[in-house]
């Protein structure tokens, strides 16, 4: 109705019209593309979910809790275990469902221990040591266990919670991923046995 009062001195309008300088345009587009790229990569990462069966597993080193050892050493390197089936179990002492499977895991470990073809490794996820030790002794766990220092291993496996168990075949590739607890010993054996036979 009266836009008139918004142009008090119109003579400035006469100034030559200038667009956006090219170099600023370049910066703007680069920033925009950079932002989109960051989001794209992160989205890809978050959409990945857990590791896929068949993915090669990177080497990691796990130092054990005191009292545990593997072949006389207080730590384990995945790369040293080529040719063996490796079962990586993520757990925590505060995790109720982990307790369901703890005894089963231990007894399955006992059946394979002497064979030497299978290695069980327990990775303790964001846990405190005294409670973790209590948990281990409660369930009489004998296979080597250690804390996931810096949550590096669990971040690599992109675990979504505990318990989760990963089965790595002789070639070092992921053969099976179990999300959540096992129901029985036979369930675990049914996954390991075909892997040994390969």
């Amino acid at each position: 109705m009266n836009e008139g009062n918004s142009t008090p001195n119109a003579e400035v309008e006469a100034a030559p019209k200038r667009g956006v300088p090219i170099w600023i345009q370049v910066i703007i587009w680069l920033l925009l593309l950079g932002l989109l790229a960051i989001i794209a990569f992160n989205m890809k990462r978050s959409q990945q979910g857990s590791l896929k069966v068949g993915d090669p597993i990177q080497n990691f080193t796990l130092s054990f809790f005191d009292g545990y050892q593997f072949q006389g050493k207080p730590e384990i390197n995945l790369s040293d275990l080529k040719g063996k089936v490796v079962v990586v179990n993520f757990w925590a002492s505060w995790c109720k469902p982990c307790e369901q499977e703890a005894a089963a895991l231990e007894s399955v470990w006992k059946t394979y221990e002497s064979g030497g073809q299978v290695v069980f490794v327990g990775v303790d996820y964001v846990d405190t040591e005294p409670e973790a030790r209590k948990y281990l002794s409660n369930f009489g766990i004998t296979f080597p266990n250690g804390p996931d220092v810096g949550t590096k291993i669990s971040q690599y496996f992109r675990i979504t919670g505990v318990p989760e168990t990963y089965f790595i075949d002789q070639a070092g590739n992921l053969a099976y991923a179990q999300i959540g607890p096992f129901g029985s010993e036979s369930e675990i054996q049914a996954i390991i046995d075909p892997l040994i036979q390969k």
Binding site: S93, W94, V126, D127, T128, E129, P130, E131, T151
Partner: peptide, 24 residues
């Protein structure tokens, strides 16, 4: 902050894991 309850400060997170952390 504890990774178990994301974006909640450790002093108020009600999970067992965080209770253990506080004991630590």
């Amino acid at each position: 902050f504890c990774p178990v309850c994301e974006n909640t400060p450790l002093d108020v997170c009600p999970t067992q894991a965080c209770a253990q952390w506080r004991e630590l």
